[in-house]
């Protein structure tokens, strides 16, 4: 457990709060992130897809990024954007794509959001601890690959424990 999740203290500046009262949160580690990316990669290779796979932490910053051979370079930024969106908004990036399609064009103005299908949050015990974003193929296929990665999270966490 220790190797996997560093229970890091969230430094909340409560004037009178003593150290022991600060809440802790689970944090995605490189070891788990690599296994999540591997699961997504396996799914991509099975489909013959050329994609970029990104795993970010809960703040939307990359832990692992892999661009499969011969994947268009533009997918790096798009994949990062999808992953970040799923992490910081704590929901699949498709939600925003759907909102825009359904007429809520204003969703495009959300700060830090890439309103494109293919970003999926990674959850642990009901909390979002990061996200995976995939780009390079059709929107549905990108998302399917991301889901395959996110679905491996529970097993990856168990493996690391």
């Amino acid at each position: 457990m220790q190797r996997l999740f560093i229970l890091s203290v969230v430094a909340l500046m409560y004037g009178s709060a003593v150290r022991a009262e600060l809440p802790t949160k689970p944090v995605l580690t490189l070891e788990v992130a690599l296994q999540i990316a591997d699961a997504a990669k396996e799914e991509a290779l099975k489909r013959g897809s050329t994609v970029v796979i990104v795993v970010v932490d809960e703040g939307g910053y990359p832990i692992v990024l892999e661009r499969l051979n011969d994947t268009q370079v533009a997918s790096v930024e798009v994949g990062l954007g999808k992953a970040r969106t799923a992490a910081i908004f704590r929901r699949p990036s498709k939600v925003f794509e759907d909102q825009v399609k359904n007429g809520r064009v204003a969703a495009l103005a959300l700060p830090g959001a890439t309103a494109l299908q293919g970003g999926i949050p990674i959850e642990y015990k009901g909390k979002v601890i990061g996200a995976i974003g995939v780009s390079g193929n059709t929107p549905q296929e990108d998302e399917d690959i991301a889901i395959a990665g996110a679905a491996a999270a529970a097993q990856a966490i168990a493996n690391a424990r």
Binding site: I6, L30, D57, Y61, P62, V64, L65, E66, V76
Partner: peptide, 25 residues
Amino acid sequence: IAVVDDGGNLMLVERLDGTFAAGAL
């Protein structure tokens, strides 16, 4: 740690545990 191709396009990133978030970028 980031590796890019000859055009500077990102290929691979790994961020070791405990590294500050901005490090990846």
